[in-house]
Nucleic acid binder design. Structure first.
Length: 518
DNA sequence: TTAGGGTTAG
């Protein structure tokens, strides 16, 4: 009778796709007294942690309130956290498992999931500690643990450790070999990956897809095309890898060609190939094609996927169609995620609507979405392009003090641009001198451009000296330099720059012409 | 009894 109830409950659970429906089943479980059954609780936790979005906290709560949690429950929560926005919680759960429970030992699942969390946050220190623990428990040679160790070390940039683990593996299978090829490609060791690929006794379609993606990421477009043509079997991942690879390497015609070919050959477009081809439309300016794609996306239902909507918004904003970009954003089903908000803020900011971008940024925060470093780049960009210096400074300090985000070169660059565009050149210079990291060429060039716009030759020459200290071979700023001299009518100096460029053979640089100003 | 590692985008 009891086993019949269990089967019935599991069947009910399988049909739940919201936290609300799971809670209803849970209430029923409680009423029937089956909540003390570890198998039932384990399945409840599994369902919440892996199958329903936004239910991980509930899975964690079930674990905490379980009178006798077992390894399966702990492992499932560790797994859920490893793929969440808070992978660190995997480690605290791993520690809790050993401290709070009666003689519970971590097993291969505990290590594989925790190592995945370490890989996701690229934490070498945590990864190596887990590796030591795995050795203590005699699980470092386990096939799944070994494979995850290879991936973890590669994600953290320690290819030598990844290789050592792989070489010490006892009879690695095709997945372990694929993990090692991926590790080589992650570290841009294309030759190493090729050697392994050739050595493989058994390959599957993943092996070839990893090679395709690695070639494309390393700019080896022709090698990817050659391998693709030799592949006896291609799946939708092979096609989308090629399309996105062409997109990254700016081979727009090839991307369109492959997209249409895959369609003709009956391979269905997926989320990745569609975001890829939308990006190609944006980069190449093929906005008519993106409109056709929009119709298809509406009809096929792909428009409900946030990655697709974000790419579509980006295309509309970059084509200057603000109203359509805004409409796509407003029609997005469900809760808008961080990428959607950031795409919207950037899109509006690009068109110069600084105040609206700020309103959107606050709406995002009010809706419970926490901004990341990229979101702050977009709002700083909005402020600099709308001349909102005070607001820009406020966001910059908010980022550091309220959100604990360390500014990157991009953030510093935005601040220099913010001061520079508004003509506060001295402040921009002082800001650079006070930066805790040494300014790079991009930051100096940003200020040099501003000196040109506002005609401050004295500061511009100082900036040029600083720029040459960072990059003695730099020549990309000649246009900025000659523009600066031209803006104050120093034609002799313009001619000087022209002569310098002549002597360095730079006169063929596209996009500039001294004759236009002289 | 319930689970896992390797590929494509953002």
């Amino acid at each position: 009778m009891v086993s019949g109830n269990v089967a019935e409950l599991l069947c009910l659970l399988r049909h739940c796709n919201t936290l609300r429906s799971v809670t209803q089943v849970h209430t029923h479980i409680f009423k029937t007294g089956l909540d003390s059954d570890a198998f039932i609780t384990g399945n409840l936790i599994l369902h919440c942690a892996t199958l329903i979005s936004d239910a991980l906290h509930h899975a964690f709560s079930l674990l905490l309130h379980s009178p006798n949690p077992d390894a399966f429950m702990y492992n499932t929560v560790i797994r859920g956290f490893s793929d969440s926005d808070h992978p660190h919680n995997s480690f605290t759960t791993f520690i809790d498992m050993r401290r709070n429970s009666n003689n519970l030992q971590p097993d291969s699942f505990s290590f594989a999931f925790s190592l995945k969390a370490a890989a996701n946050i690229r934490s070498y220190n945590t990864g190596i500690q887990l590796h030591s623990q795995a050795i203590l428990y005699g699980l470092h040679n386990h096939l799944y643990v070994g494979t995850t160790l290879v991936s973890m070390y590669a994600e953290c940039g320690w290819i030598c450790h990844a290789r050592k683990v792989f070489e010490e593996m006892f009879e690695p299978n095709v997945v372990a070999w694929n993990a090692m090829i991926t590790a080589c490609m992650r570290c841009y060791d294309v030759k190493g990956a090729e050697t392994l690929y050739k050595q493989m006794q058994v390959r599957d379609i993943h092996s070839s897809n990893i090679m395709l993606s690695g070639y494309m990421k390393s700019g080896e477009v022709h090698l990817a095309m050659k391998l693709f043509s030799e592949m006896p079997l291609k799946d939708d991942v092979s096609w989308s890898t090629m399309i996105t690879g062409f997109s990254h390497n700016e081979c727009f015609n090839e991307a369109f060609d492959f997209f249409l070919q895959s369609h003709k050959l009956g391979s269905k477009p997926n989320e990745v190939s569609l975001t890829g081809i939308l990006s190609v439309c944006t980069q190449s300016g093929e906005f008519q094609f993106s409109k056709i794609l929009h119709c298809y996306l509406e009809k096929s239902g792909f428009v409900s996927r946030s990655s697709i909507t974000n790419a579509l918004m980006d295309t509309y904003f970059k084509s200057g169609n603000i109203n359509m970009g805004r409409l796509v954003f407003e029609k997005m089903p469900g809760k808008k995620n961080l990428v959607s908000w950031t795409t919207m803020v950037t899109g509006i900011a690009m068109q110069g609507y600084g105040k609206e971008a700020m309103e959107l940024f606050h709406q995002m925060v009010d809706s419970g979405v926490k901004p990341d470093g990229i979101a702050f780049i977009s709002i700083l960009y909005a402020c600099s392009h709308a001349g909102l210096i005070e607001h820009g400074c406020k966001y910059f300090s908010m980022m550091k003090n309220e959100y604990g985000i360390e500014p990157s070169y991009e953030h510093y660059g935005c601040m220099v641009d913010l001061y520079g565009r508004s003509g506060e050149l001295k402040k921009a210079y002082e800001f650079i001198m006070k930066m805790p990291i040494e300014a790079n060429d991009v930051i100096w060039r940003t200020l040099l451009g501003a000196c040109g716009i506002h005609g401050d030759v004295e500061l511009g020459e100082e900036v040029r000296r600083r720029l040459l200290e960072v990059d003695p071979n730099d020549s990309g700023d000649c246009v900025l330099l000659s523009n600066m001299y031209a803006s104050v009518g120093k034609w002799k100096d313009v001619a000087g720059v022209r002569q310098m460029m002549d002597s360095q053979g730079l006169m063929k640089t596209p996009g500039w012409s001294v004759s236009e100003v002289s």
